[in-house]
Design a protein around this nucleic acid. Sequence first.
DNA 1: TCAAAAGTGTTTTTATTACACCCATGA
DNA 2: TCATGGGTGTAATAAAAACACTTTTGA
Lengths: 239, 239
Amino acid sequence: MEPNVIQSSPIEAAVPQPQPAIGVAVDIVILTVVDGRLRVLLSLRPTEPFKGYWSLPGGFVGQHESSDTAAERELQAKTGVGGIYLEQLYTFSEPLRDPRSRVIAVAYYALVSADRLPNQAGSRESRWFDVSAILDDPPPAGNPAEDIQLGFDHELILRTARDRIRGKLEYVPIGFQLLPERFTLTELQHVYEAILGHGIDKRNFRTKVLRSGLVRESDEYRKGKHRPARLYEFKQRTF
Amino acid sequence: MEPNVIQSSPIEAAVPQPQPAIGVAVDIVILTVVDGRLRVLLSLRPTEPFKGYWSLPGGFVGQHESSDTAAERELQAKTGVGGIYLEQLYTFSEPLRDPRSRVIAVAYYALVSADRLPNQAGSRESRWFDVSAILDDPPPAGNPAEDIQLGFDHELILRTARDRIRGKLEYVPIGFQLLPERFTLTELQHVYEAILGHGIDKRNFRTKVLRSGLVRESDEYRKGKHRPARLYEFKQRTF
DNA sequence: TCAAAAGTGTTTTTATTACACCCATGA
DNA sequence: TCATGGGTGTAATAAAAACACTTTTGA
């Protein structure tokens, strides 16, 4: 840690902060599921470098805040809503990742349910993209094969985020953050399928969810064109 | 991320690096298992703050290196050996975590087998400590209850590292890094028990390891006071 | 009445757990 | 010969996977 003397170079010992400045930023992978696909919020870069590329939203960490706080601030600014599930992902620190100057990025991922988003359509400078269309080639069948190139190392960050939530899905109740307070089991299954990138057996999924004890059935139903589906809610909104 | 314009504060847009300096350091949780106990390498702080406290080894990230490289350098310097298993853990960034100045720490953990360590005993300024004695109170029976207080937020970092490898142990072949190239199954079991903090059934453990396919038996035996034990080796030293 | 999504059980297979005795060695 | 750690198998239980048809609704 910073206050330690590097034993083999005692000259540095007396100088606590001899290093040249390194910028510290946060980058946020903001994810949602719409229409059964995992989507990420990207910003259009207005200036060089990577002008015209899409990139992850982010910002610098202030002198008197933690990276968590900086990420929350940025997340609120970009989505317009607060209280979103947010977790640190990984720190990216290759010296040349930003061509202008030395900046390390503490990356976060956020999971937000589509119903909380005011601007689902997106705007000129900020839009939702299909994660699979960016990361998987060839893109899965039926995908709009818009060939997105992300600026900086943001494709790596995005891939790291997807890998992380895929792994986490198997042993912690992620996924509820991507749904409204009440949801049908089919909606929950679609979230799982969107994250995992493959289909799941309906009966096995329902059995497993119901006897996990994480979910409570309500007496409400979602009406649609077809048979109404029972709504459930997550027992513990906090982890 | 750093190059993004914060949409809600366009003034910052034109100034890529307007933030005051934040120091970037690496802290390393160097772990080994000796005598069936998980141990961590700590350095004695020679100066304020936290003078006389034990703390995790670490150092600043240089201007032209990644945090991975900085961590490798520091690890080599502290252990005297190279090629050690090293992985990024988490980034700690509370503004007041270092009382002198603003420094964030990208924490790493390293796993090294005891047989590779030249200075197992330790020295005046650097020693191995029982992790459980630091983190668990009351310490498990038979523990030297030396009440270690770590400087900075290093107890939190150490706890985070132990939690991480406990979780990882269940689904990836960690643990081999903590053993010599050839090892007995009992030695492997002791590593697992040291990390998990509880005993494991011998027969179930051996069955599971053998049919995991991760291990190959050699025709060598370890001789000791009692019946010789067959030596095994890990099939893939790389992941 | 038809299209579309909701809902429901059983069997097979695979992994996990619990559990106790004999073996080989050096002292 | 005895103390010590090495080594082995089976039965019970629990979890995961495969698999197809009936129900309800709105159009």
